[in-house]
Design a protein around this nucleic acid. Sequence first.
RNA 1: GGGCUCGUAGUGAAGAGGCCUAUCACGCCUCCCUGUCACGGAGGAGAUCGCCGGUUCGAAUCCGGUCGGGCCCGCCA
Length: 433
Amino acid sequence: MRTLSDEVKKHIGKTVHVEGWLHKKRLLGGLTFINVRDRHGIVQVVIDDKDEVEKLRGLQIGTVLAVEGTAVEEPRAPGGAELHDAKLEVLVPVTEEPPVEIDKPLSHKPENLDTLFDHRVLGLRNLQEATIFKIRSDLLRYIREFLYGHDFVEINTPKIVAGAAEGGAEVFKLDYFGKEATLAQSPQLYKQIMVGVFERVFEIGPAFRAELSATTRHVSEVTMLDVEMGFIEHDDILKLLQELVYDVLTRLYKEHAEDLKKLRAPELMLKPEFPRYSMKQIHEMYQKETGKDISQETDLTPEEERWICEYAKKHDGSEAVFATNLPKSKMKFYHMEGEDGSARSADLLFRGIEISTVPQREHRHENLVAQMKAAGIDPDSPGFAPYVTAFRHGLPPHAGFGFGIDRLTEKAIGLNNVKEAILFPRDINRLAP
RNA sequence: GGGCUCGUAGUGAAGAGGCCUAUCACGCCUCCCUGUCACGGAGGAGAUCGCCGGUUCGAAUCCGGUCGGGCCCGCCA
């Protein structure tokens, strides 16, 4: 019967059997300490029998071990317990030296990220790296639990599609049995169609973006949370997103307080109600404060995104802020126009970066078709005809948002590059590992 | 795609015309060490200084090209 590392302390005085990876050796002459890593963490094993230590000669970190020993309460040991009188069995010997040291924090300096990703396969065995992805896993779980709690149905939509879903973003083209297909840049059209079935749907899945972007916030394959909700006013969706983000982040900071501290994450500053500023207000405030002329800008510049986040943190005590009344020029064909001529749409910014766009959709068939034509899209083309059908057969007022999981994880932890929050990131130069 | 920057042992860094037969730390190998936890100590191996060409008596160091990173901008989430 295998005992996991964190359960050793529950078996004081008994013989326990532990299995895992050799994570660290410390030889002190007559006494040797080794750390064994398993899925719950690290357990310390004390070996004083020279023959047992000899079994590890020539073996490297990563060697897979079975250890049998007596669980002993020991305040000096990490976790307060350790194994004594250990008998070692080498299950998988490893003689090759690891290319990176996995028992101490790996460098996340920008210029060293390439090395980090080159050696990702082994680097992820580092406890701090693994913690990032445990946090990501829990963020996804919190999101799912929140949405299930609000009566949403989780869906999966195709990632090989006939045409561009949104327009705007560049798409990857591929040969599909002699036809040209694209990798989905968003589940946008499908999730709207599904409002006609379930009213409230969400999907967590990949989206593919072919932009030649080389920044700390872009990758070619991104994990998106997509939410769509029928029978709403625009404000309802802003409130849902606000509640979701507040719920998920406060829960993360509560349940992962220790991990976040180890990763040097900043303190979380959030209020249940996020401040809202219109795009116009932000432009004016930014211009007044910095003296920079951004009258030519319709969208927020990256510099403004950082600035308004700092402003909201200082003045509103919130690291999350809505930029509302986005310019009409940012509108896509499926967005609804607002009363003041702007888009009925908002961006959610968190810690200096846009993590979500929240528009209401144009649900009226005639208006949608007109907007599609104005955008140069043929409503009868194979990629779009099924979508338009859903509207002809009745879709209620609806809205939703796309939400970058990678950016959320990055910013929740306080990392500086979205790729650090992705197991095996894909960017314009990286296709492996 | 544009601008600016950087490529030195497995990893992270220092060296900015001759002091370089290239330095340090971690890792690795050998030995010593019974409470370590980034253990400590002694010794050792490991680098054609990204690549090609040029300037120079002499290039890791200067120049040109090339390949590969990074950051910012644009595009976008």
